[in-house]
Amino acid sequence: MNNSGEIAQIEDAEGYIASICFKTGPPLSVGVEIEQLVHDADHPHRPLSAAALTAVVGGHEPGDGGRVSLGPGGQVTLAAWPQAGLERLHETVHAEIERVDLLITRGGLRLAGLGIDPHRAPRRVLASRRQRAMAAAFARRSGDGRILMYSTAGLRPLLPAGPPGELAARWAAVHDLGPALLALFANSPVHAGRDTGWASTRMRAWQGLARAGARPTGPDPAAAWAEYALRVPLLYVRGPGASWSVPDGVTFADWIGGALPRRPTYDDLDEHLGTLYPPVRPRGHLEVRYLDAQPGGDWFAPVALLSALLGDPATVDAARALAEPVADRWVEAARYGLTDAGIAAAVAPLVDLALGALDRGGLPGSLLEEVSGAVQSRFRRAHML
């Protein structure tokens, strides 16, 4: 398709979105994007230098098809393309994290291992024209946008959509599991020197910036996602002028209907899809966005648990049943984490289900112990609060 072509009808946009956002097939691969905040090793309150950060990691190219990128707040993101199995993913990512951490340390910096900056107020470090346009749009809506862009870091498992007949259940499950796993791995209670009262201040900020209504689930996830994407207000529209701003509330569907001076193209639609940040985003795979960044090697536990709970239809059904009592408790999960007794009661059997599935699936004992140990430390920490 020539993506510079104009979109004439809503149906054309819906068909295009449905065709690119879910790639169904055998559920064999899993990937991850690991975003980390960066601090000066000796003076973590000191503003980060864009020049210093770029000099340290700007030219680094990871192996195995991954990439390293820098975010507007100076975040470093390692994206590892999906691998054939958790053991291979662990091996690939572990080696690459060690290389990135070595580069960071040699540059006098360190990775925070947290979901929000505990030391500094939001401050722009780097900015493309796209990021400037996003920041301006967020600023018109909420102060949370500045926090999200410059002060937060997330862990994003990349999970397969699965066979066509299993897509609806897997898509629903990855949402249903959200509050429980968000609570289990909440890791952002302090921002800019202040205890916020939230286990995941990062997710509190996301909730404060929500740009659409109910989550896009149902018997036809592709159609539901297309409808959702077209009704979310535009953040900006690219153009030759200095300003990319658009009137508040204009959606992509409105644009197709003539709300803006020119017609949208498929390139415009691709750009819009990249500005959607719901808890789960389909980009061929299922990109989970509700988890806080984790310290060091702790990234593996949430990725392994999610992968195991989506491992086969029977486990998906069992996981959804266990998660159902807390499936809509996003606010409580973000605020209280595992100190909420109801959420903790749902998390425990979900973890047991996942560990059993990982054991049956042949995950090596050392990696199984790593996952179990990370989870146990979370529960111990919650009981100490």
Results as ranks from 00 to 15, higher is better:
residue 178 G to F: 02
residue 133 A to K: 04
residue 132 R to D: 14
residue 159 L to K: 09
residue 195 D to L: 05
residue 184 L to T: 01
residue 129 R to A: 10
residue 143 G to C: 03
residue 166 E to Y: 03
residue 150 Y to W: 15
residue 159 L to Q: 14
residue 132 R to V: 08
residue 157 P to V: 02
residue 187 N to G: 00
residue 128 S to H: 06
residue 148 L to P: 02
residue 173 A to N: 02
residue 119 H to G: 10
residue 157 P to G: 04
residue 204 R to K: 15
residue 133 A to G: 12
residue 144 D to F: 11
residue 167 L to C: 11
residue 155 L to S: 08
residue 209 L to T: 05
residue 208 G to E: 14
residue 201 T to S: 08
residue 151 S to Y: 09
residue 196 T to N: 09
residue 124 R to V: 15
residue 156 R to H: 15
residue 194 R to Y: 02
residue 185 F to P: 00
residue 189 P to V: 02
residue 191 H to Y: 06
residue 132 R to F: 06
residue 146 R to E: 15
residue 170 R to Q: 04
residue 206 W to F: 14
residue 188 S to E: 09
residue 128 S to C: 01
residue 197 G to A: 03
residue 183 A to G: 08
residue 199 A to V: 01
residue 136 A to Q: 13
residue 120 R to P: 10
residue 199 A to Y: 01
residue 191 H to D: 00
residue 190 V to M: 03
residue 154 G to V: 01
residue 188 S to G: 09
residue 136 A to I: 09
residue 178 G to T: 13
residue 205 A to W: 11
residue 201 T to W: 03
residue 152 T to L: 02
residue 202 R to F: 01
residue 178 G to M: 13
residue 156 R to A: 07
residue 128 S to N: 03
residue 142 S to C: 11
residue 147 I to Q: 05
residue 164 P to K: 12
residue 188 S to I: 00
residue 145 G to I: 06
residue 125 V to Y: 13
residue 167 L to D: 04
residue 156 R to C: 12
residue 125 V to L: 06
residue 116 I to A: 13
residue 121 A to K: 13
residue 160 P to T: 06
residue 159 L to I: 04
residue 126 L to E: 00
residue 195 D to Q: 04
residue 180 A to C: 10
residue 151 S to E: 14
residue 155 L to D: 04
residue 182 L to K: 09
residue 179 P to D: 08
residue 199 A to R: 03
residue 177 L to Y: 10
residue 176 D to I: 03
residue 207 Q to D: 12
residue 204 R to D: 02
residue 199 A to L: 00
residue 164 P to W: 14
residue 200 S to G: 07
residue 127 A to D: 12
residue 168 A to L: 09
residue 155 L to C: 13
residue 184 L to M: 10
residue 183 A to C: 11
residue 141 R to C: 07
residue 144 D to R: 12
residue 187 N to S: 00
residue 157 P to D: 00
residue 143 G to L: 07
residue 121 A to I: 07
residue 205 A to I: 00
residue 160 P to C: 05
residue 115 G to Q: 05
residue 119 H to M: 14
residue 207 Q to G: 14
residue 179 P to E: 04
residue 203 M to Y: 07
residue 141 R to L: 15
residue 147 I to T: 14
residue 150 Y to H: 15
residue 144 D to T: 03
residue 132 R to M: 14
residue 134 M to F: 11
residue 124 R to Y: 12
residue 163 P to E: 13
residue 159 L to Y: 12
residue 123 R to H: 11
residue 161 A to C: 12
residue 182 L to F: 07
residue 196 T to Y: 02
residue 185 F to V: 07
residue 148 L to E: 11
residue 184 L to I: 04
residue 185 F to C: 08
residue 196 T to S: 11
residue 163 P to S: 07
residue 152 T to P: 00
residue 171 W to G: 01
residue 152 T to I: 02
residue 149 M to D: 06
residue 181 L to S: 06
residue 123 R to I: 09
residue 186 A to G: 01
residue 149 M to A: 14
residue 189 P to R: 03
residue 155 L to P: 02
residue 204 R to F: 04
residue 147 I to C: 01
residue 129 R to Y: 08
residue 168 A to H: 05
residue 141 R to K: 13
